[in-house]
Design a protein around this nucleic acid. Structure first.
Length: 589
DNA sequence: ACAGACCGCGCC
DNA sequence: AAAGGGCGCGGTCTGT
């Protein structure tokens, strides 16, 4: 059963049961306030569970809550103690549908969908919230006003700012848009049979993202400090350069004969290097490594440590870690390929160097699992390339491919580079011979990529396995360009679509994994339930009461098998998803 | 003074 | 012949 949930003007809510097609199934009933809505959600969850116990189909009794936008409704609901099992997020669904219909980029909010449905003026999507990093001024002087105005407490909690024209009943709009979306999902499924699964998984991702943001990633300030002090020296009192960076900067300046040199300034460093007879076109690490000059080694060390300091140093922690938890904001569907994005704190780029600070609370463990070599395995499934599908049974796919295509198991690195080049659109130069060998041994797999690239170069769209669709080229996208520029633009687009089919299908798999995982974790019972605390493209981290560690590992494994079965065609592909139980994120092998 | 581009690097 | 996917973020530089 589905229940549409919309806020009403004085501040309450209306709950309207509808059937799978979105047609009204019972009269709407009111929920006076958030607490009443939370109570309704909890009650429905209990009924759903007892329905399972009495032998009905699993989750047949569970409610799917239909609402405008999970990210605005769910945080308050979760804070009120109501964990939602399933939902239909009209905004996320609208984005998927628009993409599939070739209308990428149109506003995706409920209000926009309503306007399109009724012929009204389509409002632009609300701009993104201020990036979290700009809402709080941690160490900055005198930011109390800033906090009062823009602090998270003051972000409207769903009821406000629907964007609908005045006089339009939000419930009417939601019911109508949902019904229309169900119809359009049906249309999309004729082309992409997995589209219904995609919509369900995307909505589940919206729930998971809010739950992860609320839970936070355990972060031990003392252990983080130990890493920073070891690398940088003691924390500088007034936010200047730590001692290790200061000394390195002086050493570099002396070696390049420029006492005023700022190693953070790329142009200055480039000029100083050239004056010293070092010919480089950039200061990228890869280029500097090729150069023989005494300043290179300290410069590379400076760059590495300066980045640690700037990106994940003390200032970062002051801003992002509260009460032992790192709480970024996750944005499902924030990347065109369906990967999640994040806002604030660089959540999806936590460097290995500081992962030792991620440690389970007392009495808890972390369960960490990542899908090994997901993208090439997905490619095998997409293409049905018999040889590559068979090769996925190997634990190390790259070594297996080196053996099969190159005849040299030891040429793993070469095979990996060639396969990544094929998926990314590179492959000139050193990878070319291995790429040709891959094409001979795995022709169907390479053909999928090359077809996708050609489609992109011609301005067409491509789809993931479940039907997530790449943006269409703008009409006239090559107009006014020289032949050379047009060719470059077209090839760039080809590289994008070439990669899209793999990256987006991998994101399909990962989305279904997360959806299945959170359902399984919810069944692991009571107050000390395992929590999903981190998700990064093909990797999950759970924070788990020690007694439930084995059960959590089993849940991960089960969710992985299910994702492979549901998402990857042919069901013959193996995706290893090895979960390990650790105290610290850094302990993952 | 401020916004936006660019660079370079972290993650997948 | 050469051609390298997706992000977020901090620091510097440039244009206004």
């Amino acid at each position: 059963m589905r229940v549409c949930v919309a806020s009403t003007e004085p501040g309450g809510w209306l709950l309207a049961p509808v059937d799978e097609a979105g047609l009204p199934a019972a009269p709407p009933r009111p929920a006076r306030d958030l607490a009443a809505l939370a109570a309704a959600v909890r009650e429905a969850a209990e009924q759903g569970r007892s329905g399972e116990d009495t032998g009905g189909a699993a989750s047949a009794g569970a409610v799917r809550w239909v609402w405008a936008d999970t990210s605005s409704v769910y945080p308050a609901l979760l804070a009120a103690g109501a964990r939602v099992e399933r939902c239909h997020d009209a905004a996320l669904t609208e984005a998927l549908l628009l993409g599939h219909e070739g209308r990428w980029g149109q506003p995706r909010s409920l209000a926009a969908a309503w306007a399109r449905l009724t012929g009204g003026e389509v409002p632009a999507d609300a701009g993104p919230l201020l990036p979290l990093g700009h809402r709080q001024g941690p160490g900055d002087e005198g930011d109390g006003v800033q906090d009062a105005l823009f602090g998270p407490d003051d972000v409207p909690a769903g009821a406000a700012a629907s964007g609908l024209p005045t006089g339009v009943d939000p419930l009417d709009a939601l019911v109508a848009v949902h019904r229309d979306q169900q119809r359009r999902v049906g249309v999309a499924r004729a082309v992409s049979p997995g589209f219904g699964l995609l919509v369900a998984a995307e909505s589940a991702a919206g729930l998971a993202a809010v739950e992860m943001g609320a839970a936070g990633l355990p972060w031990r300030a003392d252990l983080h400090d130990a890493v920073l002090v070891e690398a940088l020296g003691p924390r500088p009192a007034h936010g200047g350069r730590p001692s290790v960076l200061r000394l390195l900067a002086e050493e570099i300046a002396a070696l390049l004969a420029d006492p005023r040199l700022n190693p953070d300034s790329q142009p200055e460093v480039l000029r100083a290097l050239r004056r010293s007879g070092v010919i480089v076109s950039s200061t990228r690490r890869h280029e500097l490594r090729k150069v023989d000059h005494p300043a290179v080694e300290p410069l590379l060390r400076y760059k590495e440590l300066a980045r640690l300091h700037a990106a994940n140093g003390w200032a970062w922690r002051d801003q992002w870690v509260r009460d032992g938890r790192f709480r970024p904001e996750y944005v499902p569907g924030g990347v065109v390929s369906g990967r999640w994005a994040s806002r604030g704190g660089g959540a999806l780029q936590i460097p290995r160097a500081v992962r030792s600070a991620v440690v389970a609370d007392p009495g808890h463990v972390l369960v960490v699992a990542d899908a090994g070599q997901l993208e090439p395995r997905v490619l095998a499934a997409l293409s049905g390339d018999a040889g590559m599908v068979a090769a996925t049974r190997a634990g190390d796919l790259y070594a297996e491919i080196a053996a099969q295509a190159l005849g040299r198991p030891e040429a793993r690195a070469e095979a990996k580079l060639a396969l990544l080049s094929a998926m990314y659109g590179g492959g000139a130069g050193s990878a070319a011979p291995a790429l040709a060998a891959l094409r001979r041994r795995f022709p169907a797999a390479l053909a999928v990529l090359e077809d996708a690239a050609r489609t992109g170069e011609d301005g067409g769209v491509v789809r993931s396995v479940l039907g997530r669709t790449s943006p269409a080229a703008r009409p006239g996208w090559l107009d006014g360009l020289t032949d050379e520029a047009a060719g470059a633009r077209a090839r760039a687009r080809g590289r994008f679509t070439r990669n899209f089919v793999v990256q987006a299908s991998a994101a399909d798999w990962a989305g279904v994994l997360v959806a299945g995982l959170r359902t399984r974790l919810a069944r692991l019972g009571g107050g000390g339930r395992p929590e999903l605390v981190f998700f990064q493209h093909d990797e999950v981290v759970l924070h788990v009461p020690r007694a439930l560690a084995d059960a959590a590992v089993a849940a991960v494994a089960g969710a992985g098998v299910e994702a492979t079965r549901l998402v990857l065609p042919g069901q013959a592909v193996t995706v290893p998803l090895d979960a390990v139980v650790v105290e610290s994120y850094a302990d993952k092998p």
